[in-house]
Amino acid sequence: MELVKAGSGDFDTIKARPIMRIKDLTIGIHESKQVYTAVDRISMDICAGEIVGVVGESGCGKTVTNLALMGLLPKVLFVQGGSAEFECEDGHHIDLVKISGKERREINGNEISMIYQEPLTSLDPLMKIGRQVGEAVKIHNSGLSDEEVHDRVVKELGEVGLPDPHGMLEMYPHQLSGGMRQRVMIAMATVCRPRLMIADEPTTALDVTVQAQVLKLLKHINQKYGMTIVLISHDLSVISQICDRVVVMYAGRIAEAAPTQVIMTAPAHEYTKGLINSLPSMERKGSDLPCIPGHVPSTEEKREPCPFAPRCALADDICRQQEPPRRMIGEGHVVYCHFVK
C-alpha cells in the first residue's frame, strides 16, 4: 500500500492553497446501544476559490461529513477521530471538529456558511426576509448601524437576482416561490462573504428550470467573490455542470476523486462507472440500462474492507480481505481500488 504523506489529502498535486484539510475524519453513530461507523477515515483538501462536488447515494456519508464541519451533528452522531483544519481569513488555522462553542459562533455564517435542500424548513416562517438576512450581518458586525445593515441586505438580495429587493424586505417566506426562497437562502449564506460555502442538495427540491438558474447563480458567486463552494448532490449531472473537481463517496468512504472532466470521461472506479452509466440518456432508449446490482449497505450492515465489493463486477478475494489502497493515477486523480493500476 502506498504510504500517504503527512498532511496530504486527495488533491495534493493541485497547486492552489488549500483552505480546508480534512484528514482521516471518522464519524460514528450510536444505534440501539451499538456504535457503527457512518464515515470512515476520509481525507480531502479543499482549495481556495474552487467548487468541489461531493456525489454519492443516500447513506454514503456526504451530508454527515458536512454537518460535522459545521458542528451541527445530531446527538446520535459523533466525531470519532481525525481532523478538519480550516484556514481563517486572518490566517490562523483551527480544527473544525474540535473548536469550542464560542469559536464556532465566530466561524459559522461568517467564515463558513451552509445552504440546505428545502428552503422553507430553513427559513423562519414568522420573520420577514429583511430581518432574516440581516440577522447574520448584525451578529458578526456589531458596529454597523441599522441603515448600513439595511443597505447591505438590499444589495445582497439584488445580487442573488431577486426582483425588487426593497419590497422583498417586508415579505414573508410563504409569499415567495421555491426558487426565490432558495435565492434568499443563498443571500443569507453569502451576505457576510464567508470563505467557504457548503451547499447540501441546494437544487433537489426545485424544478429543473429553476435548478438551472440556481446552479448558474452559485457559479456566479464563486467567480465574483472567489468563494469556495462544496456542492453536495446525489445527481452527477448537476455536479458536472458547475464543479471543478468531484469526490465520489460510497458507504462512508471516498471511492474516487478527480477533476470533473476526468470523472466524466475516464472514471476509474467501478462505482463511478456504474453511476454514470445508469443515467437514462438519449442513446440508451430501447435498451436496458446498465445498472449496479444490489443496494447501498445500511450503516448496521457489516461492511467488507472495500465497501463496494458486494456490488462490484471485478471484486475478488482481496477486496474482502484488505482495504483498497489509495492510488494516484493522474493529475489530482485518486482512486481507492485494488484493480486500478
Binding site: 445580487e159 429543473v208 438558474q213 446552479l215 448558474k216 456566479h220 449531472s237 458547475i242 454514470i276 440518456s281
Partner: peptide, 30 residues
C-alpha cells in the same frame, strides 16, 4: 434546463435560455 453531462458550464455561457436570472435587470423567469 436538463443538466447536460457533456456541457460543463464555463463562465455561465451555456444554457442561456433557461438560466436568465442573476443579472440585475433581466427578468428572472421563475
Amino acid at each position: 434546463a436538463i443538466p447536460d453531462m457533456e456541457k460543463h458550464e464555463e463562465n455561465g455561457s451555456a444554457n442561456e435560455q433557461a438560466t436568465v436570472g442573476h443579472d440585475a435587470g433581466s427578468r428572472p423567469n421563475d
